[in-house]
């Protein structure tokens, strides 16, 4: 092809790359790694297995049976969180980031597309895992204990929000990955921030614990009665309402993504 012919050919394709093209790239990247599907499959299987185990061992119909069935969500979050970290850091480890940013020099678009594609995937998988765990946990209950139904107050909300928490913790990981860029350090920050900080805060500052992701997911999102106050307790522990908890988790993810996007545009690749 001569230079003139090539110039004509490139003029034929008007416009420029947009979110749609970049999102397609990120979707191909996500689905062409076997580790993506293994991680998501183990996350779902773990949540369901835990629901069944708790269901079989439930001896009393009292207590929040929905919350019990969703108990496998919190450990599974570690996997989607790490997957979110890897969506960004694996590009730095492999050197692919330079190819990505050469293909799409408008960097905020890259992070936005990564976040959107990852969020869509983990939301679907997370909801599927959450609903399956809920029904499996109910089915595993012994005779005489009625399984919770989605029509009971707060139950549908608890199942849906628990499913969404995979996506939100995943996005927090993705943002941390963009900020830190190194896999081990970013996974460390995620585990430290989400799990270890929770354990420390529970002992040191119980008032602050309500704002930490694991407490929000375990006690606000996945509970049908978030106050969950024992009848004879002198004082109820401070627990966020489900929707306030959802807002809090979204805020964490948004802050991490915004900081990651800001740094991505300012640093050399």
């Amino acid at each position: 092809m001569t230079a003139t012919a090539r110039a004509t050919a490139s003029r034929r394709t008007a416009g420029h790359y947009r979110f749609r093209q970049v999102a397609r790239m990120e979707w191909i990247k996500l689905r062409t790694l076997r580790s993506t599907w293994w991680t998501l499959a183990i996350t779902g299987a773990g949540a369901v297995a835990m629901a069944v185990a708790i269901g079989i061992n439930t001896r009393s119909p009292r207590g929040d049976l929905t919350n019990n069935a969703l108990a496998g969500v919190v450990p599974g979050l570690l996997l989607t969180g790490v997957l979110g970290v890897l969506v960004v850091t694996s590009e730095y480890t492999s050197g692919l980031i330079r190819g990505t940013l050469a293909a799409v020099p408008r960097r905020p678009l890259v992070l936005a597309a990564k976040a959107a594609v990852f969020a869509g995937t983990t939301l679907l998988v997370g909801e599927a895992a959450s609903f399956t765990a809920f029904f499996a946990g109910g089915a595993a209950l012994r005779q005489g204990i009625a399984a919770p139904a989605l029509t009971q107050p707060g139950v549908l909300r608890a199942v849906v929000l628990s499913g969404a928490s995979f996506c939100l913790i995943g996005l927090l990981g993705l943002g941390l990955g963009a900020i830190i860029r190194h896999t081990a350090a970013a996974v460390g920050a995620l585990v430290g921030g989400v799990w270890i900080l929770t354990a420390i805060a529970a002992g040191v500052a119980p008032g602050a614990a309500a704002y930490l992701p694991v407490i929000i997911i375990g006690n606000s999102l996945s509970a049908t009665r978030p106050e969950n106050c024992p009848a004879h307790a002198a004082q109820c522990p401070h627990i966020l309402s489900p929707w306030a908890g959802l807002g809090m988790l979204s805020l964490y993810a948004a802050i991490a993504l915004a900081a990651g996007g800001w740094l991505l545009t300012r640093r050399d690749a």
Binding site: Q21, M25, I28, K29, T32, S94, G95, G99, V104
Partner: peptide, 17 residues
């Protein structure tokens, strides 16, 4: 390129962008 991705997957992703 990511070591876990096939050559075709790698190129398909870049092409899509």
């Amino acid at each position: 390129f990511h070591p876990g991705r096939s050559a075709r997957g790698h190129l398909a992703a870049l092409a899509a962008s």
